[in-house]
Design a protein around this nucleic acid. Structure first.
Lengths: 196, 196
DNA sequence: CCACTATACATACGCTATGTATGTCAGGAG
DNA sequence: CTCCTGACATACATAGCGTATGTATAGTGG
């Protein structure tokens, strides 16, 4: 059945991303064949290549989609808090909770840097999540000289916390510990020597 | 030329790991064909499969090799310092410097989690580098409840710092900033509420 | 309303690279 | 000296990506 309406085409593209996200999360990027994605979507690989150009292109679309979901959650939580320090804390904890889904973690934190390259991944992350962390740190008074370095390191700490948590598979004690440990690191920021 | 002496065979295995490390670091895991590794080593793929069983097996050997190198540097530096806090700091900074080689970073921090799986990677890291961080944190007085979580998060912070640094490609100002930011986070540990 | 073009796929094909099965030759234990 | 096993080489099967090509319809200009 060739050529559907424009809306149907957009729906096909959207559906493929959704299906691909599930498969990539379950089996990992390398173990997923585009045939699987296409078949699950009721189309052939031709459709996938038409919409996304390559396997990596499809994965990139999945990555961007998930990043946006996480970022949206983060922003909502941060907006609810008031005061720079509280926004930093609320945003960080919300990020940790939002990204701690096995599906998201596997794709965003494990496969993405290898598949689309660390630099590109960093850029996507910087545009969606890390900007907010950077901004919150700046408003919390972190000195400009350390702003980028601290943003990167805290981002890395939270990402690793998410992986650590998923590995402990929903153990509530672990989640509690992760959040308290994160608080310890965030507390440090408020004591940074050069802060203003 | 079939069948060399046992020593020659061990040398072949060692050489393949060395060559593979270079190629994986340059092009990334996916873009390296075993034919390239074998050819550069003066053997055929048969030799690679004989010694390492699979492409992932070879990569795993490379990973373990590099981990050990980093760990050795780390331990040497930590032993030179005295006092728990100083050992923590010395070890952490040494780790950051040791792992900040483009070759090491690409393999250990970007490809390894995706190729050999995060759990296996974590285990390798825990056995080589993270143990020492955990031990140093414990001696620095971190409460047992937060020990594992803080180890993971600080480890993640340092890994991301390394990626961030390599991306800035040897900019001395960036290196300085990374180390100072790391000090800020390490300082936090000494103020952890439950510490003893 | 009608030709026409670009879109949204499907189909067919080539190529690369992994893994495996099989062959081969020499070192070393007995 | 013999035999077996280790250290490879060679040959083959197969999966999966990408690309080239085909095709029918949805939109669009006249």
């Amino acid at each position: 059945m060739p050529r559907a309406t424009a809306a149907a085409a957009a729906e096909t593209a959207r559906r493929l991303v959704e299906i691909a996200a599930d498969l990539f999360a379950e089996r990992g990027y390398a173990a997923v064949a585009l045939d699987d994605v296409a078949a699950a979507g009721g189309v052939t690989r031709g459709a996938v290549y038409h919409h996304y150009g390559s396997k990596a292109g499809l994965f990139r679309a999945v990555t961007a989609h998930l990043q946006q979901e996480v970022a949206a959650t983060l922003v909502t939580a941060a907006e609810a808090a008031d005061g720079p320090l509280d926004r930093l804390r609320a945003g960080s904890h919300a990020f940790l909770d939002a990204i701690t889904e096995p599906r998201t973690v596997r794709i965003l934190l494990i496969d993405a840097p290898a598949v689309i390259g660390w630099q590109d991944w960093r850029e996507l992350d910087a545009d969606s999540s890390a900007v907010h962390l950077r901004e919150a740190l700046a408003e919390a008074g972190v000195s400009p000289a350390l702003l980028d370095a601290l943003t990167a390191q805290l981002s890395g700490a939270m990402n690793e916390a998410a992986l650590w948590l998923v590995d402990r598979d929903g153990d509530p004690g672990a989640r509690e510990a992760a959040h308290r440990a994160l608080d310890v690191l965030l507390e440090a920021v408020t004591r940074e020597p050069g802060r203003q």
